[in-house]
C-alpha cells in the first residue's frame, strides 16, 4: 500500500478548489436531507456551476455528502465506504442527525452523530482530513452549497461560538 505523508495531504488540500466529485452516503437518515441533496443537483440550483458532480463510487469521490444519525445496521458499511475513499478525505456532514444525532441523539439503535463515528473511524485507522458541519432539518439546498464552498475554502465561516452573560438588574 502506498504511504501518504502529511506534506502530500496538505498539498492536495490546497489543490482542491474546483471540480470536486461528491459521493452521497446515507447512514440511515429519514430521506429529507437526501431529497435536498438531489435538489441541489438539479438545474434549479445547479452545483455543476462549481464543477461539483455526483459519482457512484466512493473510490472516485473527493467529498462525501454524509446524512443520517449512523444506525447500528449501517455502521460497518459506513466505515467501509469511508475507508474506500482516497486521501485527502473531505466529509460534508449534512443535517441535525449527522451532526448531533437530531431527535435520535440518545437512541439505542443509533450512534447519535458524527462525533462518535469519528472516534470509531480513528480506532479503525481511517483518517478524515477535513469535516464541515451543515446544520438544518432538513438542510436547504442553499445551505449545502454554502457548506460546500466553506469546505473548499471559498467563503468565510459565519457562525462562531457565542457566550453571553445574562443582564444584571
Amino acid at each position: 500500500m502506498l504511504e501518504v505523508s502529511s506534506v502530500n495531504i496538505a498539498k492536495a488540500l490546497r489543490a482542491i478548489k474546483k471540480s470536486v466529485w461528491v459521493y452521497h452516503l446515507n447512514s440511515g437518515s429519514c430521506n429529507a436531507c437526501d431529497i435536498e441533496v438531489l435538489d441541489a443537483l438539479t438545474p434549479y440550483f445547479d452545483v455543476e456551476r462549481f464543477g461539483i458532480k455526483l459519482v457512484g463510487s466512493p473510490r472516485h469521490a473527493d467529498v462525501i455528502l454524509f446524512t443520517g444519525p449512523v444506525t447500528r445496521e449501517s455502521l460497518p458499511k459506513v466505515v467501509k465506504t469511508i475507508k474506500a475513499m482516497p486521501r485527502p478525505r473531505l466529509i460534508l456532514v449534512l443535517g441535525s442527525c449527522g451532526i448531533g444525532g437530531g431527535i435520535w441523539w440518545d437512541t439505542y439503535s443509533t450512534l447519535g452523530g458524527f462525533k462518535k463515528l469519528e472516534e470509531i473511524l480513528r480506532e479503525n485507522g481511517v483518517e478524515v482530513d477535513r469535516v464541515v458541519y451543515v446544520p438544518g432539518c432538513p438542510v436547504r439546498p442553499e445551505a449545502i452549497i454554502y457548506g460546500m464552498l466553506l469546505l473548499l475554502g471559498l467563503v468565510e465561516q459565519k457562525s462562531k461560538r457565542v457566550e453571553v452573560v445574562a443582564s444584571e438588574g
Binding site: 451543515v134 438544518g136 445551505a143 465561516q157 459565519k158 445574562a166
Partner: peptide, 19 residues
C-alpha cells in the same frame, strides 16, 4: 439564518450564562 456551516462543533454552540 440558515448559513450555519462550521468546521468545528464548538462553533455551533451559543451560551447564555445566568447567576
Amino acid at each position: 439564518e440558515f448559513e450555519l456551516s462550521a468546521t468545528s462543533l464548538e462553533d455551533l454552540k451559543s451560551r447564555v450564562i445566568h447567576r
